[in-house]
Design a binder for these strands. Structure first.
Lengths: 340, 340
DNA sequence: ATGAAAGCGCTAACAG
DNA sequence: CTGTTAGCGCTTTCAT
């Protein structure tokens, strides 16, 4: 490797001291225009690039943020990630991607590892049962923001960015009721997650407010992987008194349900309506295009990054973290052909 | 921030010197079992964690690799990324994710930035016209591996991991011909990319070998974004003498084409067959499930990471990069209901 | 087996 | 405006 030039090399060539070069390059304090030019020439000549590692060591700051997702293959996290990364890049931060695969052990291992690398903060949308752990992380002085996946109590402890899952699910369910559906099934995500419990609650309350009695037999719960929604749907649809609509609590769940429905030769929306949640890119392209609750995923990512950077800057200035802020972004129901 | 303990703190408590602590922790040279125990106690007591930044500075090695993709929202890159990350994590590396958005300027900015952070190597699957640039990157001593997106000439210069795009496309086209199709349209990706040129060539040669004359009017080329395949398909299908099959050179392209076909009330595969390329997760779930060329995307990612780590280790040992290796992984045609 | 000391490349007082 | 100096936390000769 052609060993890269350092400040000392530049200083020697420019005939000044390293500190002058450092000052000239960082532009904090003033440097004579004349010498500055000589320095710039030397920089050019040596093809000097600052060594960020040593800078990080000196400054106690790495301009790096850590993003934890359960899996980047889930388009929901991919879109959030894009928002995080765009925003981070524009502010001079790079992002380390950590897939935890829903595994608490991997999540913790990653966090511990990243702590030793002096990352400036964490954006977490992988947490399953980590409230206490993450609270402690902030207690150690690390800026943290949780996106989408967080419990009610996390809102007191750290920055959060999300949507009103209860209201969005309530509205989606009410829409189905208003368009004449009475037996509305639910494709329910893991109830370990607060966000799914909230959506579930929205569904139940919309039913109740419309005077429709809740039927637990209409609720499909994934047991192992999402793959089983295919089976669950087939079973539900072939039992007596099948539903006339299904509310899937995420688009990926909706895709699996639609797959089963197609395989049973059922027509969507004539035999059964389907509504999703997320509005990932593909939901407009499947057949029929999916009616779904639109979450501003990219914007959630941007908001999370901004939130984190705000905390980092506050900490740089004041030495301590600002009080937590909880952001709630808006959702909307996108009507397409999977409902009538 | 509760200021973290360092080697010196541990040394003081254990009543030894920093170098002894360092040795005890790294286990390279021998340390008395007795003192080692005292040190471990002190580590426990102070909750010591090594500072990787300073270690990186000292060692000239950051245990970090840089992954460049055009956009993580493309499921193809998401799956490759998962493979890269899993493999990297298991070997103690972390990965910095860089979305270049097909923008050469961003790509270069990222690479220059990452060079200053002493990343140990680059995995690149974003490159459009960067052969010379990337060759130089390796020339500067950086381990590089290109995945999927690379030119023929790159194979001489850097490690590559990919599939035999020509043969896979040839086989897919031949399959369509063998099942009775004669007017086979093409949904062609950007011809700036070698991989698409290769697939295109496979299509043409399969046609030629079957005695079917090539018709340029059957080739849909995206002009700006992939979105326009929707329009292109509608136009092609409503013109005189429409095709009886379409070979989409990527699954995302296939999804857009199928969307248009559905909107025209055409039945797949009865009115027209569709075949894709990639076998992303969703291709089995769309309606009808998509016949497609399966690329081992996750494995490509794993192979790329292994290839890079091999280079890094070789360089650590011998001081220079090993000669480039070009890996070709196998593909297979997955038959589903979008073809007869 | 252990300690002292040099130094990775950079920034930031402190003097001048 | 500029140079000297002291580290950031760690590894690694070189002595002992």
């Amino acid at each position: 490797m052609t060993t890269t030039a350092n400040l000392k090399d530049v200083a020697k060539i420019a005939g000044v001291s390293v500190s002058t070069v450092s000052r000239a390059l960082n532009g904090k304090s003033c440097v004579n225009e004349e010498t500055k030019k000589r320095i710039m020439d030397a920089v050019e000549q040596t093809n000097y690039r600052p060594n960020i590692i040593s800078k990080s060591l000196k400054m106690g700051k790495s301009n790096t943020i850590c993003l934890l997702v359960s899996t980047i293959q889930n388009p929901i996290f991919a879109e959030i990630t894009q928002g995080v990364e765009d925003t981070a890049r524009k502010s001079g931060y790079i992002v380390v991607l950590c897939n935890t695969d829903e595994d608490e052990a991997i999540e913790r291992e990653y966090i511990e590892n990243m702590k030793t690398r002096w990352v400036d903060g964490f954006i977490i949308c992988s947490a399953v049962n980590s409230s206490q752990y993450i609270k402690r992380l902030r207690g150690e002085g690390f800026p943290v923001v949780m996106v989408n996946r967080f419990d009610k109590e996390d809102e007191k402890n750290v920055d959060t960015v999300g949507v009103d899952n209860y209201q969005a699910a309530y509205d989606a369910t009410r829409y189905l009721i208003q368009t004449g559906h009475r037996r509305i099934a639910l494709g329910c995500g893991s109830e370990e997650l607060y966000l799914y419990r909230e959506r579930y609650r929205g569904y139940r309350e919309a039913l109740e407010d419309a005077g429709i009695s809740y039927d637990d037999g209409l609720v499909m719960r994934e047991t192992y992987s999402q793959e089983c929604f295919y089976q669950l749907t087939k079973k539900l649809m072939s039992a007596g008194d099948p539903p006339d609509a299904i509310f899937a609590l995420s688009d990926p769940i909706a895709f699996r349900i639609m797959h089963a429905l197609h395989d049973m030769n059922l027509n969507i929306p004539n035999d059964i309506a389907v509504i999703g949640f997320d509005n990932v890119e593909l939901s407009s392209m499947v057949e029929p295009p999916l009616t779904t609750v639109s979450q501003p995923l990219y914007d959630l990512g941007c908001a999370a990054a901004k939130s984190l950077i705000r905390q980092i800057q506050h900490k740089d200035r004041c030495g301590e973290l600002p009080t937590p802020v909880n952001s709630v972004l808006g959702t909307s129901l996108i009507l397409r052909r999977s409902t009538r």
